[in-house]
Amino acid sequence: MTVKHVLEAHLLTKTYQAADRPLTVLDAVSFQVEQGNSLAIIGPSGSGKTTLLGLCAGLDVPTSGTLSLMGFKLNNMSEDDRAYLRNQYVGFVFQNFQLLATLTALENVMVPLELRGERNVASKAKELLERVGLKDRMHHYPTQLSGGEQQRVAMARAFITSPKILFADEPTGNLDEENASHITDLLFGMNREQQTTLVLVTHNLELAKMTQRILRMKGGKLIEDTINE
């Protein structure tokens, strides 16, 4: 499926009911992302970055405003329909890896394709684990892997479905400088290879500058939209 704008957000607003008053954490944010582009969302803690990422990925629904992912409007979709859409088109990389502790590295990478009902997926999972430098660690469990190795497993899992769009939430946030650099190289390298659209949240300005475009958030508002040279 080919669409010009993989992601379209229009006046996205998210409000929670606090103890005695409503709390708006995202305030009328609008932007579009074209197929194959890379985009970073930056801003201080509490600026709405992660909330925006969750809405864009269909993990939550806005209080108001509209959101389209791959041409599908998410607002009126059921949770099951949004989950199906994510499984077909979306990949995720999180700061805390979110690997299943009872599964080996290989089994963790296989999960997204197995959820689609596909069979004989081990060979593709092995290829991706080799691609991220874990050929000799495939049968280790997450607790037997370092943080950098766990994030490489998460990277392989994210790319196994050849996602149209990849959402990354602080992908290097829990890593030391050497591992962060390696994960960054893998992320952008695999992104180019698969022509995936990349949307990442980061506190790391140097990482953000590697993308084609930066959205700067403050107080729940989009205050700057910059094209990187």
Score class of each variant (00 low, 15 high):
residue 156 A to P: 08
residue 214 I to P: 11
residue 202 T to G: 07
residue 23 L to Y: 12
residue 158 A to I: 11
residue 79 E to N: 09
residue 79 E to G: 08
residue 172 T to Y: 02
residue 151 Q to I: 02
residue 52 L to V: 01
residue 183 I to Q: 05
residue 173 G to M: 12
residue 35 Q to S: 05
residue 154 A to I: 11
residue 4 K to A: 13
residue 67 L to P: 06
residue 4 K to I: 11
residue 128 L to W: 04
residue 175 L to E: 09
residue 183 I to K: 08
residue 166 L to W: 09
residue 88 Q to I: 05
residue 222 L to I: 09
residue 172 T to F: 05
residue 169 D to I: 06
residue 152 R to S: 09
residue 149 E to M: 02
residue 155 M to K: 07
residue 174 N to H: 14
residue 153 V to A: 12
residue 220 G to S: 14
residue 19 A to W: 11
residue 109 V to G: 03
residue 132 V to Q: 06
residue 101 A to K: 10
residue 122 A to P: 00
residue 33 V to I: 12
residue 14 K to T: 04
residue 84 Y to K: 13
residue 206 E to T: 15
residue 220 G to T: 08
residue 121 V to M: 02
residue 92 F to R: 05
residue 223 I to S: 15
residue 24 T to F: 02
residue 38 S to Y: 03
residue 57 A to D: 05
residue 37 N to H: 14
residue 82 R to L: 10
residue 30 S to N: 12
residue 137 R to N: 11
residue 58 G to T: 02
residue 134 L to D: 01
residue 135 K to C: 04
residue 204 N to G: 08
residue 162 S to R: 14
residue 134 L to Y: 02
residue 209 K to Q: 15
residue 22 P to W: 08
residue 212 Q to F: 11
residue 133 G to L: 02
residue 63 T to N: 09
residue 44 P to R: 05
residue 44 P to C: 09
residue 40 A to S: 05
residue 4 K to M: 14
residue 86 R to H: 05
residue 172 T to R: 01
residue 69 L to P: 06
residue 80 D to T: 06
residue 222 L to R: 10
residue 54 G to K: 07
residue 182 H to K: 14
residue 96 N to T: 10
residue 51 T to E: 02
residue 83 A to M: 03
residue 46 G to S: 06
residue 176 D to T: 11
residue 183 I to S: 11
residue 217 M to S: 09
residue 224 E to A: 13
residue 153 V to R: 03
residue 116 R to V: 00
residue 208 A to D: 14
residue 170 E to C: 09
residue 125 A to I: 06
residue 60 D to I: 03
